[in-house]
Write a protein that binds this DNA or RNA. Structure first.
Lengths: 192, 192, 192, 192
DNA sequence: TATGAATGAGTTTTCATTCAT
DNA sequence: GATGAATGAAAACTCATTCAT
């Protein structure tokens, strides 16, 4: 990832970050195609050419964002410990993922947007994602082998949790619209 | 909105439908901003001015699509019968919603896209949605009052099911990418 | 070349030609990079988007121009008849080429410009050129074999004539500048 | 123009030369408009502002280049000696000019490029050129008067040689393309 | 001297929409 | 109804040049 990044000056670092922050807000709000460099540059309070001085193109900003975001987004999966108690571990993953979606709704939305478009710019990066998921699916499968949890498709389980948790952020507005009083996320137990 | 629809000729009807079908494919694939009228007209095999003869603008096509789609999308909620067995009814809703997401992935994606952008064009329409959700939330709340199902936030429950089921279609690619062999959707029971 | 060109309307044909004519003037005067679409559209008295309605890009206009021009530019070589008298044939080629450079100075300049830049967009097209040159070089070589003309490198001969004749057009200004009274092109005989 | 050149430090001199060398390569390859300061500064391995520290503008670099180049380019004409044998003198000029075009192909191309564009920046400088040409044309005319060489337009003769020789460099690529095995330049004798 | 940072003024291109037939 | 032609407005860059240090 950071194999050979040439050093950047203080101000370089700072402005790049300002741009990425602004771009995240804008891309998360209106997607890649719906966002203009003008909007980003205005949000970053930099001139448009200056934004393009730091990033070669709109695509470059977006890709950089995705790449940066991916590490963060995979983090919760790392939590699951094969040596731990299955139920505990899975709940830990869920909580972690929930917290992530709750705390980083924009990142979540950016990711959701990209996936919805068919992940045109995420192809390469997703390879690493798959490996990690397979690893954790194997852990779950092992638990099933040992009879420690009921048998379901491990991938299914991971994805269900992913989907459920991510949705709280991605579909924030949708949710807000038809359920004013959502108190706190509680995963205490299934309703039946 | 559609209070006073002037009558349309056979060919009118047909071409409008062709355009909407084409637009659904395109919008679902790349969102509103990412789709051009050119792409729609090409997909519809009609000339661009002709597309705009049937619909006043790109927005008009999109809005029409959303409006048409909404009825379909709310349908599963209607299934829940207050007089029925709660568990049965809820599972019926889930199955119905799952089937919908599975059978209409493009519609699902269109909807997801719109929601992700903050539903800028869905404001008006969503009023009806909320009413229906409230109605069904009340049904679930009633079941809880009667001690027939465990207590959780009813809105939560509805949304969780919505989110979980919709995700199978919306995030089709994401899912396909890290779990090649997803057999069949099975909601038999929780893993633990 | 014209294997499968879709038919164009009258006005299409006309405007395409107007654009190509204008572009020839502009490109010949200032080269590819030195010419803007604005200049072309102004010279063609068409709006800029309209120019791009007929040609996909500035490159497309330029390439079309080169391709169209090439046939014209190769024509003189066709003149050389293997069965004729060598000296006569070669002089015929020279006269033909001279006339071409004289009568089509802009085309000549366009071509010269492209070649000077290293023919970046002529690669493919030049294949055909080489074949024709080889054919005529063979004719000349044959004449040499038969002892009908002195031995020199046939390619050399062709190129020398090409260069000499083309220069009268390409370097028109240069020539005009230091020799006011160039009477008429006369290739009567060598000065010594 | 260069009446009052302020003294430059060693490093000044050196960097100016580095820039001019780089600029020559770039301008010769893609012409004035087709070349960016970025390309020049990269080729010179200097920062862009530093390049503009040594030369006021892109134009300034280019003009300086032309001016420097002109002396070199006129040199061959000086060779022709009115007192010498006409044929010998003319051949000496040809050889000299040929050698120049062969040995300085980039300079040759730069000049050709400028001339092709109508010599917009060479106006002033060309005055001197004309004078020299006139002088040598007079020499040739004198030879004709004396019956020492056949009568042709002297300007013509000079230009023909100029054109023919320069072309070997300017149109290097064109030539290379349709005559792979050009051995050596031989001006031994006319083919007929 | 030297250069990272910044930008105004273009330049190419895109695209929703309109015109004319 | 249908479509080829046309365009204004915007969007994504590009680039010579300047600023600040």
């Amino acid at each position: 990832m950071s194999e050979h990044v040439r050093p950047r000056s203080r101000i370089q670092q700072k402005n790049r970050q300002i741009i990425l922050d602004a771009a995240l807000r804008e891309f998360a709000a209106r997607g890649f195609a719906g966002t203009t460099i003008d909007q980003i540059s205005e949000a970053a309070r930099l001139s448009k050419p200056n934004v393009l001085y730091y990033f070669a193109s709109k695509e470059a900003i977006y890709s950089q964002l995705l790449e940066t975001l991916l590490d963060l987004w995979l983090a919760p999966l790392h939590i699951m410990d094969p040596a731990g108690e299955p139920k505990e571990q899975i709940l830990a993953y869920m909580h972690s993922k929930l917290a992530l979606s709750r705390d980083f709704p924009q990142e979540s939305r950016l990711f959701a947007n990209e996936i919805l478009q068919g992940a045109p710019r995420l192809e390469a990066i997703l390879g690493g994602l798959r490996a990690l998921v397979e690893e954790k699916a194997a852990v779950i499968a092992q638990w099933m082998e040992e009879g420690r949890i009921a048998r379901v498709d491990p991938h299914h389980l991971i994805i269900s949790i992913w989907a459920l948790t991510q949705h709280y952020a991605d579909f924030e507005i949708q949710i807000a619209r038809f359920s004013a009083p959502i108190a706190r996320l509680s995963t205490k137990r299934a309703p039946f």
